[in-house]
Amino acid sequence: MVTDLDASSEFYETVVGVEPDEISDSNIEYDTGQATLVLESDFDPAVLDAFGLEEPGDDRGDGVIVAIEVDGPNEVDAVCQRAHDSGETVRMDPTDVDWGRRMAILADPDGYTVEISAPLDN
Rank of each mutant, 00 (worst) to 15 (best):
G63T: 09
D71P: 05
L37F: 10
N74T: 13
D59L: 07
S26E: 13
T32V: 04
G57R: 10
D58S: 12
G33V: 02
V64N: 08
V47S: 10
Q34P: 00
D59Q: 12
I23E: 15
I28Q: 05
G57Q: 12
A50P: 05
I23G: 00
D77T: 14
G63F: 05
F43E: 03
D31T: 01
N74G: 12
S41L: 11
G61M: 13
V76Y: 03
G72L: 02
I28L: 11
S41C: 02
I68M: 12
A67P: 04
S26T: 10
I68F: 11
I65W: 12
A50F: 11
F43C: 01
F43I: 00
G52I: 09
L53K: 04
I28Y: 01
Y30V: 00
E54R: 09
A35R: 01
T36M: 14
N27V: 00
F51T: 04
E55K: 12
E69M: 11
E22H: 06
R60T: 06
Q34S: 14
D42N: 14
D25E: 15
I28G: 02
D31H: 04
G52H: 12
A67F: 06
S41K: 06
D31I: 00
I23M: 07
D49I: 03
F51W: 12
E55V: 03
A46I: 13
E69P: 05
I23Q: 10
A35M: 14
D49N: 11
G61P: 10
E40V: 04
D31A: 04
A46G: 05
D42W: 06
E69A: 08
A46T: 15
I65V: 15
E54H: 07
E22C: 00
I23N: 01
L53F: 05
S41Q: 11
E40Y: 15
P45I: 05
E55M: 07
R60P: 03
A50N: 14
G57A: 07
E22L: 09
I68G: 08
A67Y: 09
D44V: 10
N74L: 09
L48S: 08
L39K: 00
E55I: 00
V70H: 01
T32P: 06
F43R: 05
F51D: 06
D49F: 02
V76G: 09
G61D: 03
V76R: 01
L39Y: 02
I65S: 06
V66T: 15
I28A: 05
P45R: 03
D62E: 11
E55H: 13
V47T: 15
L37K: 02
P56F: 01
S26D: 14
E69S: 08
E29R: 10
G61K: 06
I68R: 13
E54V: 09
Q34A: 14
E55P: 05
D71W: 05
I65G: 00
V64H: 07
D77A: 13
P45E: 10
E54I: 02
A50T: 13
P73E: 15
G33S: 07
E40W: 15
D25Q: 06
V47R: 12
D71H: 10
